[in-house]
Every structure is written in structure tokens, then in C-alpha cells.
Amino acid sequence: MWDQEIRAMGSCHAILAASVLLATVLPAVLVPGFSVYGTHLLWIYCVSTAVTGVSAVVFWLLGVTPPAKKHTVGYKLSRLFRSCLYFFLSCLFFHTVLVLYGAPLIDSALETFSLAVLLTSLTTLRCLCVLGPNVQAWIRVFSRHGAMSVWDTCLQITVACTLVGAWFGAFPIPLDWDRPWQVWPVSCSFGATFGFLTGLFAAPTWIHYHRKQLTYKCK
């Protein structure tokens, strides 16, 4: 059972990583004038869309998402609606946090918001896929004994990696090197993406090596 779940997770993460790479490479081939620095916002949107679409589909196919309690269409619709709402609220939340951390308040609001969208699609969306629109559960997952399945542990690792990556991404901004990737928010979105990719790789590996210690009370 362990092997199966880890294998499923590994392939799921491979698909996600591939989607990120494709979202970088494909537009570069297809769209003229596309470059990761030059049209950075476009790149962010590509990656966000790819990650959002692929995770939704993959998690739905894998059946990780908690099953709906009721099977009425209305309930499912309201759930979908709440998910979208949470997605948007999370974008606003990240935007606020970024501004509080020192992002320009007015000048480059669009850039900041794009980064917020990227962060949301890398972190919040995953929470939505694994736990459903339930903030209590989200908070619960991020405690030592809060993970109730392999996927919860994996969620902990990827989200932490993404956020830490974005945090580290802010470091080069004040340096006076005048490189194109030091422009806001390039380094942060790179950091977040690299963190996400690292998390995708690290989570199954870590779980594989610690599977003896991991005990989940109920699933």
C-alpha cells in the first residue's frame, strides 16, 4: 500500500513538474518575443494556469480529494463556487502579505498580484485539491500531528518549500548587480517555482525514507 501511494504521488508530481517545464518551453517556441524575464507576467500566468489545470485534473483522477458528503448537483456547485472564492481570497491574502513584506504598494500592483496568483496556484490550490474548501482543516494540517494521510504530509512539504523558496527569492533584490532577474517580482516567482519543484521532488523521497515513522491515525 505504501509503495502504491508513493508511486502514485511520484507520477503525479512528475506530471506537475513536466507541466511547469512545458509552460516555460512551449510559449517560448510558439509565441514570438516570449522570454522569461522580458514577458515575465505572461510566464507567471502560463505556469499558474498549467499548474492549476493539471493539479485539478490529476487529483480528481487520483481521487485524493475528499468525497463530497452529498451528491446533489447544487452541493457540488456550491463547493466549486466556494473553492473559487477561496482561491480569489487567497490571492488577496498573498497580495497583502507581499505588500506588508515590502512589495511596492501602488507602482507595480499588477506584478505583485501576479506573484500572488502564482503563489496561490502553487499552495492554496493544492490545499483545495487535497482538503477541500475547509480552512480549519488547512490550519490543522500544518501541525506536527495534523497530517492524516500521505497526501497531507506531502502537502506540508510542498507548501513549505514553495513559501520558503519565495522568501529566499526576495534576497537578491537589494543587491546592486543590475541583473534582469533582480527586478520585482522575477526573483520571487523563480524562488517560488524552484521551491515548488524541490517540494515535488522532496515530498515522495522524504516519505519514502520515513515511512516507518509515519503513522496515520485515521484516513
Binding site: I139, F142, S143, R144, G146
Partner: peptide
Amino acid sequence: LNWHGLLLPQTY
């Protein structure tokens, strides 16, 4: 604190 389960009392 949340990581150690101390921030939110165990409601569930």
C-alpha cells in the same frame, strides 16, 4: 505554535 498543535484547541 500551530506546528506543535498549541495554537488552535483541538476542536475536531
